[in-house]
């Protein structure tokens, strides 16, 4: 049993001068450790709920896609290097929720990730993470380097 890790969440509120809408920003720096993923996901999801994200989304979709993005960042991005960190940032706006996950790795080309539902891939043990993210949120974007993902959930 490892000692509990302390994750510090920063939460701030901003309102663009040209708009009446407000935006809540939540950010947390996560160590490269798979054992802390659940705690980090739970913490961010609770802050999302407190910031006005609908309960159903905060309970399930936010948790699943954040878990996927964090695991990818830790395993494939940071290559399990404990000296590296993963930055999670969430912007809760009136029209959308944007979840950003950025690792310190070299990045990858998301366009070459194969479809895990193809008959010859359906029984593989891995390769469903990015696919699930794309299915569960409304938009997925990467930075040019491929080490930062932005997952957008639009409010109905």
């Amino acid at each position: 049993m490892t000692a509990p890790l302390r994750l510090y969440v920063r939460r701030s509120e901003s309102a663009p001068p040209d708009s009446e809408s407000r935006r809540i920003n939540i950010s947390v720096r996560v160590p490269t450790d798979l054992d802390v993923v659940e705690e980090a996901v739970d913490l961010v999801a609770r802050h999302c709920l407190a910031s006005g994200v609908p309960p159903k989304a905060a309970r399930f979709v936010v948790r699943v896609v954040l878990c996927e993005a964090l695991a990818n960042a830790i395993v494939y991005g940071n290559q399990l290097d404990p000296a590296k960190r993963v930055d999670v940032r969430v912007e809760v706006g009136d029209e959308a929720v944007a979840l950003h996950v950025c690792d310190e790795g070299d990045g990858f080309d998301p366009s070459v990730v194969p479809d895990p539902t193809e008959p010859d891939r359906i029984e593989l043990n891995q390769g469903r993470g990015l696919f699930l993210i794309r299915q569960l949120v409304d938009e997925v974007h990467f930075n040019p380097r491929g080490n930062a993902i932005c997952m957008i959930m639009r409010r109905a």
């Binding site: 309970r59 399930f60 948790r63 699943v64 878990c67 996927e68 695991a71 593989l124 043990n125 891995q126 390769g127 469903r128 993470g129 696919f131 699930l132």
Partner: peptide, 9 residues
């Protein structure tokens, strides 16, 4: 509560 792709795998 939830399952991720590693769990499915």
């Amino acid at each position: 509560g939830y399952i991720d792709s590693s769990g499915l795998g």
